[in-house]
Design a binder for these strands. Structure first.
Length: 534
DNA sequence: CAGTGAGCGAGCTTCCGCTTGACTT
């Protein structure tokens, strides 16, 4: 008997099918050890961490150990990234006393070929990766557990918290709120003319903006009973490329927007869909799609919508921070629909998005018509039209593009306006973040990971830092004080590039070029605003 | 002698990231 160990039980089931009868596949359910929760767990002299059993994991490892005793060979197939390597390290620590035929198997997709190849080419644990995880973990712990007490002491709030991820996230929300508070709405005015021809009405706007309505009025007077001339008609067609398939962040953003749920809820439903076998792994930062599946989906598009709706297989460049084996979030089987109203809705969203991503470009024709009043040849009015020539992917996935119809027009043509008027407009402040836009912004800044985006939002809520107001995140009084305090005291931590700097150093650790303890010391010193003190 | 207050010690909130089922209401 041979033993194969992974993190996810769903993955374990799949892999068990690929391997033969003499294999047993077991899952750890993620990390098995971590720093203790109720103390720092780090020796401040040596930086040595004290990793302890996570709740319930000793039992899981015990059952794996029993199998390990009888196994001829053991393959550790945890995820091919920093966290997965650390899990592998702790598994090895437990099993190496029992069985010396231990190997690290690495695969980047869950297919039979990739699994067999991983077994064949298996090697040993990469300690550099493990050390990078130690550095990441310990730095996060130091920041969280050593800085939070400053807030308790100086702001007098029980349970306030500081974190490498949550604090910059909170800063985003507070900064946006300040922009909104400081925003002065300004009114401005446009001169507009409405025309109607062949039952189609359309608008032309003077290409000039007025600060006061009174400045526009003399122009309006001149237009009374004046005919307009079509001076120029320019058309151009625009290609609209399909959206990418979903990753965790885009699913959370789109799902919460379209279904009116919190990102946490969207993630929960996605997890259920995954466990029931309806979709691929829901915690991923990749847009990559399995080639075979993509071809299957494309032939479905051809059958259901026609050949002209089939697009091409696009390759997306994953962000440099993207780690791991997973592909995009997509349906596993187009014919297998989930039960349950919300499950079905989210599955439909995922399915139509996936199909749209493999569909053809939409073609739109934009028309720009320039007109002038007969008596005022120097004034230029502009009318715009937008027409869909071919709907392409938008047939499969809803978009919010509005058509702007124009009647047939010819250059030199005379038109009689239906009415002319001054339209009052107002500058608007930027909107507050929604859960979805916050998570998107964090992803863009490289802050947080697919498994934690939903939790970040939850933490900010449960600390009393933000409340949800009509779907928008509104910071509380204490949030302002926390952000001001941290910005004053620990500016480096509040810098949005802190995580990126850390990641750069961790890359060096992973390449064996830098000592992990030095990375922790250097980064933590920067946070504390210290330069050379021990 | 009773009440007051300084001083001390014990107990206490907190991080990010990986993964679900086993709990209770």
């Amino acid at each position: 008997m041979k033993l194969f160990i992974v993190e996810s039980p769903t993955k374990a089931k799949t892999i068990a099918k690929y391997l033969g009868n003499d294999w047993v596949v077991k899952a750890t359910l993620g990390h098995i050890k971590d720093l203790p929760e109720n103390e720092l767990g780090i020796d401040l002299e040596t930086l040595e961490p004290r990793y302890v059993w996570l709740k319930g994991k000793r039992k899981i490892l015990d059952s794996i150990k029993r199998l390990a005793k009888r196994a001829k060979k053991i393959y550790i197939g945890t995820d091919p990234d920093r966290e997965g390597e650390a899990i592998a390290y702790f598994i090895k620590e437990e099993l190496s006393k029992i069985n010396r035929y231990l190997y690290r198997a690495i695969f980047y997709e869950v297919t039979k070929y990739a699994i067999l190849k991983a077994v064949e080419t298996s090697g040993d644990i990469n300690l550099n990766l493990v050390h990078a995880q130690f550095a990441r973990r310990i730095l996060d712990r130091l920041i969280g557990y050593r800085l939070s007490p400053f807030l308790w002491r100086d702001l007098g709030g029980r349970g306030l918290s500081v974190g490498r991820v949550q604090s910059p996230a909170l800063r985003l929300i507070v900064e946006r709120e300040r922009q909104i508070q400081g925003f002065k709405r300004r009114k401005y005015y446009y001169l507009k003319v409405e025309f109607e021809k062949n039952g189609v009405s359309f608008f032309a706007v003077l290409n000039q903006r007025f600060e006061k309505a009174s400045n526009a009025e003399p122009y309006l007077k001149k237009l009374k009973d004046v005919m307009f001339v079509v001076k120029q008609i320019a058309k151009n067609t625009q290609k609209e490329v399909p959206p990418k398939p979903f990753n965790t962040v885009s699913l959370q953003a789109e799902g919460s927007r379209k279904l009116g749920l919190s990102v946490d809820n969207v993630q929960k439903i996605a997890q259920r869909l995954y466990e029931d076998g309806h979709i691929t792994y829901p915690r991923t930062d990749s847009y990559r799609i399995n080639k075979q599946k993509a071809e299957e989906f494309m032939s479905f598009i051809e059958k259901a919508y026609g050949k002209e709706y089939v697009g091409k297989l696009r390759s997306y460049r994953d962000k440099p921070l993207a780690q791991g084996a997973h592909e995009c979030i997509r349906p596993t089987n187009l014919n297998k629909k989930p039960r349950g109203e919300l499950d079905l809705k989210l599955w439909h969203l995922i399915t139509s998005r996936t199909l749209a991503s493999l569909s053809s470009d939409a073609l739109r024709e934009k028309t720009i018509v320039k007109l002038y009043p007969l008596t005022e040849k120097d004034l230029e009015f502009v009318a715009e039209g937008l027409k869909t020539l071919f709907d392409g992917w938008t047939k499969l996935y809803t978009t919010e593009v509005k058509e702007k119809p124009l009647p047939y027009l010819e250059e030199g043509e005379l038109l009689k306006p239906k009415r002319a008027y001054i339209e009052e407009m107002q500058t608007e402040p930027p909107p507050r973040y929604t859960e979805g836009t916050l998570v998107k912004t964090l992803e863009r800044l490289g802050i947080g990971r697919p498994s934690t985006y939903a939790t970040i939002v939850k933490t900010l809520k449960s600390r009393g830092y933000v409340i949800v107001d009509r779907g928008y995140l509104k910071p509380t009084e204490i949030a302002f004080r926390v952000v001001d305090y941290l910005t004053e005291r620990f500016p480096k931590l509040m810098d949005y590039t802190f995580t990126k700097d850390m990641e750069d150093h961790l890359d060096y650790v992973e390449e064996g070029k830098e000592d992990w303890k030095l990375v922790v010391i250097e980064s933590y010193r920067k946070v504390l605003n210290e330069s050379n003190k021990g």
